[in-house]
């Protein structure tokens, strides 16, 4: 994208105004990916900040061989994975899964609450598949990236990405029934012929 190229050239020359503009242009996309990869809204601010600090430090290495957004996704994925690994190595209090937090002692069987619970349950399932599969799955299914671009982001062959996607999906489908809120969806989405 011409605009990105212009801003990146200025960033490389040390122009912090251009860096600020680059940040403002891409921050929402980065935040969305960070949230989807972390699976929770907490820590998003910190990770987004680390991503852009990393962008500032290494923008000189950006050669323009891929699109800037692809390079940015690569930086984001790496920072999120580092954050997750660091978080795992830190002793933490046992945290109740967010979707299980009893915010309302008498929740109404409202469709919105049900959707919220399903998304939370889906996040828990995602946590159970391997890091590599989760990364490509999130990039493909939630961010909408194609296999070739994901290959560029994660530094793996396209065929490997497709294989990871296939198995990620298969594992998630198999685990679906283990989450009660998602298990309820299976009969709901059954086609008429499946029900007969």
């Amino acid at each position: 994208m011409a605009l990105d190229e212009e801003l990146i050239a200025r960033c490389k020359a040390g122009d912090t105004v251009a860096f600020r503009e680059l940040f403002r242009l891409h921050r929402a996309d980065v935040a969305r990916l960070v949230q989807r990869m972390l699976g929770r809204p907490t820590d998003v601010d910190d990770v987004v900040q680390e991503v852009f600090l990393q962008v500032y430090r290494s923008v000189g290495d950006f050669q323009g061989k891929s699109r800037f957004s692809t390079w940015l996704y690569r930086v984001t994925v790496n920072v999120v994975l580092m954050h997750r690994r660091a978080a795992r190595s830190r002793p933490t209090l046992v945290e109740q899964p967010e979707g299980m937090t009893p915010r309302d002692p008498d929740p109404l069987p409202d469709e919105q609450a049900a959707r919220h619970a399903r998304v939370q349950a889906f996040g828990r399932l995602l946590e159970r598949i391997s890091e590599k599969k989760r990364t490509v799955f999130v990039l493909h299914e939630l961010q909408g990236l194609g296999a070739a671009e994901i290959a560029d982001v994660v530094g793996a062959p396209v065929l490997t990405v497709r294989t990871r996607l296939f198995y990620a999906r298969r594992e998630l489908e198999a685990m679906l029934k283990e989450e009660p809120t998602l298990a309820a969806l299976v009969p709901e989405t059954a086609a008429p012929e499946d029900e007969s």
């Binding site: 929402a28 987004v48 959707r115 889906f122 969806l185 009969p187």
Partner: peptide
Amino acid sequence: TEGRALDRVLEEAREVPAPDVDWARL
């Protein structure tokens, strides 16, 4: 049917609003 259920929850996950970040502070 599991695939369709997964598609549905994916659709819902895509519709989750963008995170509410305090951009000025960040």
